[in-house]
């Protein structure tokens, strides 16, 4: 069942040949039960490491990760939907969704019944016995989401789940996810590098820096749902996020300027 998530002064470093490499530098965060939080950071900002810590695949070097204020085992209790869906190719959609329940020793009939309920609710009733290779990208995404939801995890992590999809499928799934969340009241931590996606989905946005990852700012999004991407409020929040998150400027990029100069000279010579 949904719980709240607390990160208390998380540090993570790895030993490398050239000494200690700090990946996460003092992140503290409270995610209230039933809220939708987005962690926004560019690629290589230590987001994946943070995810591995929250799922319990790794432990922080120092600091603690608490569910409802308690330090309890997280493997098997924190769900993850990632960009590489990691569906089991030898299992049908139904068997994939039932996997987590199988790990909880729920009897075969019961778990298949429950898995079926989820897939049918997601409009995949006709594809229960198809293998992942036979499904479209959007369908696979839904199978992956059901596989996580069906186990009733305490927290649901979503690690750039939609970034490999085309625009139509992605926005469709965003709406789908929000409707689902409104019904199920799960605690969702969503990771992305896209500002618009973050503003569209979240209750608040946690902007983190590149490695070593620190929290730059936490930006609440108080626009009522359903949100329109064209509204002035949306643009205002987006602008606010951009000032913190930052975009690489086209001007004053010395490397690019040199490369372009070179190309121009090269072209002039060949004419």
């Amino acid at each position: 069942m949904a719980k709240d998530l607390t990160l208390e002064q998380i540090h993570k470093c790895y030993a490398t040949d050239s000494g200690k490499r700090i990946i996460i530098d003092d992140i503290s965060l409270h995610v209230p039960k039933g809220s939708f939080v987005t962690i926004l950071g560019s690629n290589g900002s230590g987001k994946s490491t943070l995810m591995r810590l929250i799922t319990g695949q790794e432990e922080p070097t120092s600091g603690s990760i608490l569910l409802d204020g308690q330090n309890i085992p997280r493997l098997g209790h924190v769900g993850l939907v990632s960009q590489e869906l990691n569906l089991f190719p030898w299992r049908t959609a139904l068997e994939n969704v039932a996997f987590g329940l199988e790990m909880q020793d729920i009897p075969s009939q019961e778990r298949l019944k429950l898995a079926k309920v989820y897939l049918e609710a997601f409009g995949l009733g006709a594809f229960l016995n198809q293998y992942p290779s036979q499904l479209s990208g959007g369908m696979r995404q839904k199978v992956a989401i059901s596989r996580t939801l069906v186990t009733a995890p305490d927290i649901i992590l979503m690690d750039e789940p939609f970034s490999a999809l085309d625009f139509q499928t992605r926005t469709g799934l965003q709406c789908f996810l929000l409707q689902l969340w409104a019904k199920l009241k799960e605690t969702i931590v969503f990771v992305t590098h896209e500002v618009e996606e973050a503003v569209f989905l979240s209750d608040f946005i946690v902007v983190i820096s590149t490695i070593p990852a620190k929290i730059k700012k936490i930006i609440p999004v108080s626009i009522p749902r359903p949100r329109s991407r064209n509204s002035p409020d949306f643009a205002k929040v987006k602008a606010e996020v951009f000032t913190v998150y930052g975009a690489t400027s086209c001007l004053g990029n010395q490397e690019l300027k040199e490369a372009l100069d070179f190309l121009q000279r090269h072209k002039a010579k060949n004419v």
Binding site: N86, E102, M103
Partner: peptide, 17 residues
């Protein structure tokens, strides 16, 4: 694929499973 092993672990799989 490491990802398959990871996602099974996250879903609660023990070594035998």
């Amino acid at each position: 694929p490491k990802g398959l092993v990871d996602s099974a672990k996250i879903l609660g799989a023990k070594p035998k499973e």
